[in-house]
Amino acid sequence: MTAVLTDSVQVEADQIVAIDNFDTMYYTINSAIHKKPKNNPALNYSNVQLGVPTAVNAFNPLKINVFYQDFNTVVILDNRFAEIFKIDFNTKQPYKNVTHVSTGYDNTIWIFNQDLQQLELYDYKADKIKATTLPVQSNVLDLKSDYNYCWMLTENYLYQYTYFGSLVSKIKNKGFKSIAVTNENLVIETETGLLYKPTNSETLITIATKGMLIKQFLLTNETLYIYDRNTLRKYQLKIK
């Protein structure tokens, strides 16, 4: 698979969070989260009490979840960056030590419960666990999701689950470091480059990324974005 460069732009950010189909960019600088629509003024959000966010997930732009691991807390933002919900897991019974968070359907988020070593689908409005997975035996490296599935990368395996918590697939981790997901297709980062995993397939296709410095990567439909600390490059993925 080839990655054909179609555009590049200078960006100063700690992390590029997401880029949607309308070229709206979500990114972080220090403790602030920024949303920059292509032709509209930027919005930003920061929480002085909680500090620098550990992870931001903008898969659902109407319910953006911001995770502050040091405080075991998630804040849900709407599309205008107004706070619509705050989840402090320190106050929940039973107590939950959360290390990873990703978007679920409706009012749910996927959380990895470190103490139980399992993935849980948590309804934050009902304060109820809707689904759980079997415990895993290794550290979690990455967590990504859409409305139907959740992908969890651990040191040993890459797991795919339904929103009922049922295991769909399990692939041995052969040097995988992180993942990006779009339309149930995955791009997987390894020590040597990027791999493409089509939906409903365990085939891993090498993406030609020779010479690319990859600090971060994102996937939106068939568009691959690669960020190298000051330049965001846009590539079109094409099967050879």
Results as ranks from 00 to 15, higher is better:
8 S>A: 12
16 I>R: 05
17 V>N: 13
17 V>K: 08
18 A>N: 13
25 M>H: 03
26 Y>Q: 00
27 Y>D: 01
29 I>Q: 08
31 S>A: 00
31 S>R: 03
35 K>L: 08
38 K>W: 13
38 K>Q: 09
40 N>L: 12
41 P>R: 05
42 A>C: 09
42 A>Q: 14
44 N>R: 14
45 Y>N: 02
49 Q>G: 09
51 G>L: 09
51 G>H: 02
54 T>H: 12
60 N>W: 15
60 N>E: 11
60 N>R: 13
60 N>D: 15
60 N>M: 03
62 L>T: 15
63 K>D: 08
64 I>R: 00
65 N>S: 15
66 V>T: 10
67 F>I: 04
67 F>G: 05
69 Q>D: 05
70 D>M: 14
78 D>K: 10
78 D>I: 15
79 N>R: 06
82 A>F: 02
84 I>N: 06
84 I>Y: 04
86 K>E: 00
88 D>V: 09
93 Q>M: 11
96 K>T: 06
96 K>I: 12
96 K>W: 10
97 N>P: 04
99 T>Y: 07
99 T>H: 08
100 H>G: 03
109 I>N: 09
111 I>Y: 02
112 F>N: 00
113 N>S: 02
113 N>H: 09
114 Q>A: 11
114 Q>C: 08
115 D>M: 06
116 L>D: 01
118 Q>A: 00
120 E>W: 01
122 Y>N: 05
123 D>S: 00
123 D>N: 12
124 Y>L: 00
125 K>Y: 01
125 K>I: 02
126 A>I: 08
126 A>T: 07
128 K>E: 01
129 I>F: 05
134 L>F: 04
134 L>H: 02
136 V>F: 02
137 Q>F: 14
137 Q>S: 04
138 S>M: 01
138 S>K: 02
140 V>G: 05
144 K>A: 03
147 Y>A: 06
151 W>R: 06
153 L>F: 01
156 N>V: 01
159 Y>P: 10
160 Q>L: 07
166 S>E: 06
170 K>V: 12
172 K>S: 13
172 K>E: 03
173 N>E: 10
174 K>I: 12
175 G>W: 08
176 F>A: 02
177 K>G: 02
180 A>V: 03
181 V>M: 09
183 N>E: 06
185 N>Y: 00
187 V>N: 14
188 I>L: 13
191 E>I: 06
192 T>F: 11
195 L>P: 13
197 K>M: 14
198 P>S: 11
198 P>G: 10
200 N>C: 11
200 N>V: 09
203 T>R: 14
203 T>C: 12
204 L>M: 10
204 L>F: 09
205 I>Q: 11
206 T>S: 15
206 T>I: 13
208 A>H: 14
209 T>E: 09
211 G>H: 03
217 F>V: 15
218 L>Q: 15
218 L>I: 08
218 L>E: 13
221 N>I: 04
222 E>W: 14
226 I>W: 11
227 Y>K: 10
227 Y>V: 11
229 R>N: 15
232 L>S: 14
232 L>C: 13
235 Y>L: 05
236 Q>M: 07
237 L>K: 13
237 L>N: 07
238 K>D: 13
240 K>R: 12
